[in-house]
Amino acid sequence: MEVRDSQVLAAMSHPLRRRLLDMLKLDGPATASVLAEKTGQAVGNVSHHLKVLSGAGLVVEAPELARDRRERWWRRPSEALSWATSDFVGDPVTEVAETVSLDRQMTLSRGWLSEMETAPAEWRDAWFSSDAWMRLTSAELAELNERMAALFAEFGAKAASDPSVERQSVFVFGRGFRAEP
């Protein structure tokens, strides 16, 4: 889903709403009650944020999953969300969205570092942290982004292709931008 409306970007630029979107992507459809339990939030608070996400078209109801009229299930209409900051030049919501995203990435990274020593050995040995300085053109940086996104999509599809293998949730992120050492 290509986000081109700043109101949609603003709707997803909230830490809890980003987390709800992540959970619905990783675990599939859920009710507000299930999401509230997983996040430690009140059901009413989660319901409010789901309504905001729904108003922005970021989640939709899944009535086919409901057992009765009172039960409301929610799902993401699209697996991937992306936006180009160039679509929001001069709009302060861009910086907010990027800041929320970066804060989430750093929080998850710090969480892993704090639990790494007690994690099973195979997970301690499998994790990675990689960075590199390169000299690239803007077109080469765009190509690197496309190739990384394709690799992320390829590995993300493995769970759907073979659900018999036990998998753990894994967070992977990458950023590339112009900078000086």
Rank of each mutant, 00 (worst) to 15 (best):
P63Y: 14
P15L: 07
L151K: 09
R19A: 09
L151R: 14
L108H: 09
P120I: 15
D27L: 11
E146P: 00
H49A: 04
G44F: 12
E64R: 13
A11N: 07
R135W: 10
T39Q: 07
V93A: 06
A160N: 09
R110P: 02
D27R: 12
Q7R: 15
A32E: 02
A42C: 04
V3P: 00
V52I: 14
D87E: 09
N45Y: 11
S138K: 14
G28W: 14
R135M: 06
E37S: 08
E71T: 15
F152K: 10
S164I: 12
R72H: 14
A32K: 02
L102K: 06
T137D: 02
F88N: 02
A84S: 13
L24C: 03
L81Y: 08
T137R: 07
E71P: 01
K51A: 12
W73N: 07
R75E: 12
L53N: 01
V93D: 03
W112N: 00
D162A: 13
S54F: 12
E95D: 07
N45G: 04
V59G: 00
Q105N: 13
R19M: 09
R135T: 14
S6G: 08
S101C: 14
G28L: 08
R147E: 09
E37T: 03
E95H: 13
R104I: 00
T107E: 08
D103Q: 15
R19S: 09
M106D: 04
Q105F: 14
S33T: 15
R110C: 05
R147F: 00
K25I: 00
A153H: 12
G57H: 13
V170I: 13
W127A: 12
P92D: 08
L9M: 02
Q105D: 12
M134E: 11
A126I: 15
S161F: 05
Q105M: 14
S82W: 04
S114H: 09
G28I: 02
A56W: 09
H14I: 10
S130C: 10
A126N: 11
R18H: 08
D27Q: 13
A153I: 06
K25C: 06
M148S: 07
H48E: 01
E115D: 06
T118H: 05
A10Y: 11
L21N: 04
D68Q: 02
Q105W: 15
V100M: 05
T85S: 04
G90F: 10
S114R: 12
W73E: 06
E117L: 15
R18Q: 15
V170S: 00
T39K: 03
A97L: 05
E79Y: 05
L113R: 01
T94S: 08
A80N: 10
K51C: 06
R135L: 11
L50Y: 09
Q41H: 14
T107H: 09
F155H: 06
R178S: 03
S130G: 09
T99W: 10
L24G: 01
S130P: 00
A66M: 08
W123E: 05
A80Q: 12
T85M: 00
Q105R: 10
L16C: 04
